[in-house]
Design a protein around this nucleic acid. Structure first.
Length: 419
RNA sequence: GUGGGCGUAGCUCAGUUGGUUAGAGCGUCUGGUUGUGGCCCAGAAGGUCGUGGGUUCAAUUCCCAUCGCUCACCCCA
């Protein structure tokens, strides 16, 4: 038997209703903030991600679904959206048409990792990118939107963490200082951190290893070595957040794994998912466009994991959907009236009623059981004496009241149900 | 890539200190009088006990391998 690929999932009722609920809420909030949806292809040239995300990152070095097509081009299923959105902006010269472009997306992503709670190989993100402005108001806006979506879903158990990586020059200075500090302790570091020492030294702060953490406790912090420009930017972001009443904490050790970040980085974390605590993450990337294109476009954005958020919602019982129901079930009494029953159902559907009818030639009792199972508000019964008189029965399933109506007057069903 | 746990009906799970026709609840289907649901009752369908091999008179139960699921590490959403 052929099964779905490891780390992928079929999503169907009733679960899919929760997805609809989240997607609708996400769209509503993005559109309130005047973001436009962008849809990009599921695959891109491999070089886009290699250059955009960074060769040394885990995503590029070991997690991408990469394959060669029949024209010998190396393609990759998108592992994240930012590089693709920036590519589209450059390709279509969004930046030349208007100064600021505010874009959002809801899309599947692909990374070849071992699946676990809150982590899949095909997973889904919603997110946004604002291109064309260096304003700290937009850094804050990303955090505010992400916060509002998560809060409106009803989640309680989450924290907003922010940090600044500053401009590249001050970060390089700082890295040198950190290296200086760590050199004498190098032998004590875990094997993973020894590798990080060369590839991405900042990430040693993220280590869960105890001795690593002990070593890092007294390490110099980036935030204490930021230049004035970076500090002012960070300060502004904090002010915007405070004026929006978004609670946040500054985490000087928040270092994100993607190469392109400058200035603000942030995460929203939750304990309700398992060990994968990040519900969403993002930051500013003023140097990304130049990496993959011919010109700079400052940008800021975030991405949020839909599976993780829905899992957190489930564990926190964050929102409750109404029980499914239908308006009318059409019961066919006489076996030879299938056509008439189906035609009546169609008319009711055209009137805008959520209608179901029997397709299995089942007994009246079985049809009634089905109507009940579907939580039908009303049932109409077609056949028998009433049909001979040109009528049908309309039954209210809640009160069990029945009335006889003319078969030519199905509109009456609509007025009974919708008033 | 590394490590732990688990694989029995559509779903959630019992069970066998190895021994004849493998169970429950839910779900599905049929019926409880002639054309009417919910509750209740009766009955039915549905399982190569993940797969392959080994030990044994006998294995779903023990052993090995393999595949799958799951959780965790790394990293990330």
């Amino acid at each position: 038997m052929i099964k779905a690929i490891t780390g992928t999932k079929d999503i169907f009722a009733p679960e899919v209703k929760r997805w609809h609920y989240l997607e609708n809420l996400v769209k509503r909030i993005f559109e309130n903030f005047n973001y436009n949806e962008i849809r990009t292809p599921v695959f891109e040239e491999t070089a886009l991600f290699a250059r955009g995300i960074g060769e040394s990152t885990d995503i590029v070095s070991k997690e991408m679904y990469t394959f060669v097509d029949r024209g010998d081009t190396s393609l990759t299923l998108k592992p994240e959206m930012t590089a693709a959105v920036v590519r589209a902006a450059l390709e279509h010269s969004f930046d030349k048409q208007q100064n600021l472009n505010k874009l959002y997306y809801i899309s599947p992503m692909f990374r070849q990792e071992r699946p676990q709670a809150g982590r899949f190989r095909q997973f889904h993100q919603f997110g946004a990118e604002a291109l064309g402005s260096e304003s700290p108001a937009l850094d804050a806006e990303m955090i505010i939107i992400a916060h509002d979506i998560i809060a409106e879903l009803g989640l309680k158990n989450f924290k907003v963490k922010i940090n600044s990586l500053g401009i590249p020059a001050s970060r390089e200075n700082y890295k040198a200082k950190l290296k200086e500090y760590l050199e004498p302790h190098f032998d004590k570091l875990s094997d993973d951190s020894k590798k990080r020492f060369n590839s991405n030294i900042l990430r040693i702060f993220d280590s869960k290893d105890e001795t690593d953490q002990k070593v890092m406790k007294d390490a110099p912090l980036l935030i204490e070595h930021l230049d004035d420009e970076s500090l002012i930017h960070f300060d502004e972001v904090k002010k915007y957040l405070m004026s929006a009443n978004v609670n946040f904490e500054i985490d000087p050790k928040l270092v994100r794994g993607l190469d392109y970040y400058t200035h603000t980085t942030f995460e929203i974390i939750s304990d309700s998912v398992g060990s994968q605590s990040a519900l969403c993450g993002g930051g500013r990337y003023n140097k990304l466009a130049a990496e993959i294109g011919d010109r700079d476009i400052p940008g800021v954005g975030f991405a949020a994991g839909i599976e993780r958020i829905l899992l957190a919602c489930e564990n926190e019982n964050a929102f409750q959907l109404e029980e499914d129901s239908i308006d009318v079930y059409v019961v066919r009494i006489d076996k030879d009236l299938n056509q008439k029953a189906y035609q009546s159902a169609y008319q009711l559907r055209k009137l805008g009623l959520l209608t179901e009818v029997d397709y299995l030639s089942r007994s009246v009792k079985a049809q009634m059981r089905e109507a009940n199972k579907l939580n039908s508000k009303y049932v109409i019964m077609i056949g028998g004496d009433e049909f001979q008189k040109g009528n049908f029965l309309l039954k209210n399933m809640k009160t069990s009241e029945q009335e006889e109506l003319s078969i030519n007057n199905l509109e009456k069903v609509y007025t009974r149900i919708r008033g």
